[in-house]
Design a protein around this nucleic acid. Sequence first.
RNA 1: GCCAAAGUGGCGGAAUUGGUAGACGCGCACGACUCAAACUCGUGUUCCGCAAGGAGUGUGGGUUCGAUUCCCACCUUUGGUACCA
Length: 921
Amino acid sequence: MAEYNFREIEKRWQKSWADSTIFSAEEDPSKPKFYALDMFPYPSGAGLHVGHPLGYIASDIVSRYKRINGYNVLHPMGFDAFGLPAEQYAIQTGQHPAITTKENIQRYKEQLRNIGFSYDWSREVQTCDPAYYKWTQWIFMQLFNSYYDKDENKAIGINQLIQRLEKTGNKDVNAVCDENTPKISAKDWNAFSQPQKLDILNHYRLTYPAEAMVNWCPEMGTVLANDEVKDGFSERGGFPVERKLMKQWMMRITAYADRLLENLDSLDWSTSMKEMQGNWIGRSNGCELDFKVADQNLKLTAFTTRPDTIYGVTFVVLAPEHELVATLTTAEQKAEVEAYVQYATNRSERERMAEKNVSGVFTGSFVVNPFSGEKIPLWIADYVLAGYGTGVVMAVPSSDDRDFKFAKHFNLAIKCVIEGTENLENPTEIKKGIMINSDMLNGLESDQATLKAIDFAAKNNFGIPKINYRMRDAVFSRQRYWGEPVPVYYKEGIPYLIDEADLPLELPEIDEYKPTSEGEPPLARAQNWKYKGVYEYETTTMPGWAGSSWYFLRYMDANNEKLAVDPKKANYWGSVDLYIGGTEHATGHLLYSRFWNMFLYDIGVVNHEEPFKKLVNQGMIQGRSSIVYRDKKTNKFISAGLIDKYETVAMHVDVSMVKDDYLNLESFKNWRPDLAGAEFELEDGKYKCGYEVEKMSKRLYNVVNPDDIVESYGADTLRLYEMFLGPLEQSKPWDTNGIDGVFRFLKKVWNLFHDNDGNLNLSDEKPTPEEYKILHKTIKKTADDIDRLSFNTSVSGFMICVNELSALKCNKREILESLLIILSPFAPHISEELWQLSGKSDSILHATFPEFNDKYLVESSFEYPIMVNGKLRAKITFNIDESADNIKKEVLANPQIEKWLEGKDVKKFIVVPKRIINVVV
RNA sequence: GCCAAAGUGGCGGAAUUGGUAGACGCGCACGACUCAAACUCGUGUUCCGCAAGGAGUGUGGGUUCGAUUCCCACCUUUGGUACCA
């Protein structure tokens, strides 16, 4: 009577779980904790497609597995709800982004519920909720009130800095600050006006206002962070981005550069992920060297990582934006230099990148090599960046590719300083070796020469060791509406934090979501929006990454109205034990989160320095588009196998009209009016489509919605199939074609419990050794596979297990109940249903993962593959403890083997116990 | 250019420590059931060959009794990054 009715079963259990508190987590010191986290989604209008749940399913399996292994599991979900698409939509339609966002979240939650995730929804967070962003603003305030002390190597309250300034000025303060921070004495400080004092403090604060060169995207009307710009275009939308000097809030992430870099070692992340962050931070060890300007009382400081090549310096190059460009240009060169600077600074980042040609201009001035005393020309070129190092490069054309190209182009001197490069067409091919033509450094190895050069420069007061970073402080302002307001107001042009008691500072209502006619951000439109009714608020909002930089902490204590997170709870849950999400967040979210978490660690909010102990990047699920081919001459559609005979045009068709690559002709004709009269050239009476693996996108008609899969196969099938598709971390195309196999598997599971008439049929008989063996083999495999997140192989393990049990017609309760428990993290609905049908009153969620027992797998004999010279020739079964001599005797006497020996001498006889036997002749 | 990861049947993929390459699933072929189709079940399915046998994990070489696995060189694909001195 009972068929596998997944629709009814899944609805029922999903409701039952939602009505209970079965997935809510409470701190419980008696149990080990496990924190499994998904990167929370941005709720877009398009809903989830089949690629999104991949990681969620994996983390859900681990969560459920850990739960039945006695762990206290925290497995929450929420929404990264501030963002551009909702705002763009608001600009077009006038609809408040909060409304669209709310609708989209509703839709997402329903889609997620359909898949049967074990989320603790009581801890849901939404970044756009004032109850949440109150604390995002609070963290901003803590950053504003802190500076980074290098001696303590941590963030410290700004009040302590003020006390030191009052007593001794800043000469002994070893802190991270702006390059241009003035040296002040206690006397200076105490004589300063309040605005002057605040200005000094801004040079130290971990979040600070600054005039900064930013990535301005005119199309979007906002600035973007470095990680939001790709090849001169915005990552979202693909609009052109230009450089612009603007007043911005900045985050002093560079203060943490070293710790962010060094801690990478301790993290269980993929090497490529660590590599990406390492490159992004880009620490380079080197030194600064001073070059005196010839005949003037001026010096230029260059940063170099290769002071060993100092004797190979044949010119020095300034960035076009360098402040001394005008001073150092001679009268004769003035016109040429001005024209070049004009040209270089007006070009956008994008143009500069597209431009591969070498460009530059001579200043007319000369500088002096501090080591050799040689006079060398000073140039200006845009391959030198104002923002990196000092904006001055000592050019060594014999060791550096760019310097080499530049010297070649302008016919400048090239001097080789490394042995073996003298006769090379391109001396930069050899980067390190024994120094030559280098006076005091001659004969030294590059690395030793580097040390000696730095030492010499330091002793003679024209150089110091220095570490530079590629990473910049992060721009924190967005000229947009749909983000967290910055909790700052202005009094006489000076920014002040609002009172903590006035948090949250809520987004005001405005008439339109566009910038004002004066180009002010949308918040400038707000009427009567003033602090204490008097002072203007900051009108930029926080960027998308603000709310996502600490949401993993809020989950630990999501409903606390008094604190961002109770340190006691944060200490209990600690770092995330498994974080699953996309690789696209390598240099954005994952870096900013580490930064904020580290800061909160410094100020004592949490007791773990790193937020994500283990990180796994799920691969992208690509679309598998279906293609039909229209004959150019007759307008007939030609089946894929026959297109060689015609000249055809390819056309994407909706994948919902295609099954197993065969096109449903009726649906196709009904798809669009112009196709109603379509004719076809068929193969074997069917139309076979071609396919293409590409991005999943509406435009390519290849989007597959999980709701549709759940409707036709059920959530358990979807979960298993997504896992079965291949390794979690690998990108792969979604191909619905294979899903029947997984569905069949679940039906076989169902059939194990039922007789041919569909009646429940379980036996209480003692299982046979063979049945135990099948079960315990699968228990071990499942546990091992989950530990290494190899879910595709555990699914095939289940299939093997069920195939073998079916062959034995096994319906032993003892075996099948254990099977249900190990299957339950993967296919929770069917497992729960069969568990209850078999007479259990308690949920399978409260069951315990069966203990693996080795004794069922012990074999008394093994069928050895016998190889002769590495080629498989026979198989013979021996007892496990058979002596090597006996094995040898029997193998050599075997007629199958004898044939291959042909009486030749046996050189070697190798027996690898329980593996293989190899005879070498 | 540089850095990282990966190349295995018609397809997705397996082989966890150097030990039977192609598990499991899809697809395909044949068969059973059926009036018929679908479902389901069974058999087969890396390639060449009737077979015996041979070849085979991107290419070429090496180490080893034995290599998808280790080493060297190269090719291709994907991702990251790009004047970072």
